[in-house]
Amino acid sequence: MHEQMLDEPWGVSPSVAFRPEPFGALAYHFGNRKLTFLKRPEMVRLVQHLAETDTVRSALQDIGIPAESHNAYVGALRGLATIDIIRPRGEVSE
């Protein structure tokens, strides 16, 4: 389940705007009006870096997330996916 996402290309939904905050960022989705706190700067960098890499796994590695934390980060990404903050890459530009 999480494993599958690791090898897929993902990116930020076009309906989402980020506002930098000291703890990380606020992500606001203009379509579903969901506001989400990204509570760590690494989480923000990861989300924003997704579009620049071929897979979630390489994004995690590029950002320097330790392997033992990958499950938590991927779980967070899946949470963001359920509210369309991020999407599988093929759907991002639609």
């Binding site: 009006r33 506001l35 989400t36 989480m43 330790p66 033992e68 499950n71 938590a72 980060y73 779980g75």
Partner: peptide, 30 residues
């Protein structure tokens, strides 16, 4: 049982990374 996917995990939880808020609860703001 013996899945190593399990956890040699850090203490980090999803809740430490993201938190969702619905602004529909903030009535009357807009």
């Amino acid at each position: 049982m013996n899945e190593d996917i399990k956890n040699e995990q850090s203490d980090l939880l999803v809740e430490d990374l993201i938190e969702e808020v619905s602004i529909d609860g903030m009535c009357g703001v807009y």
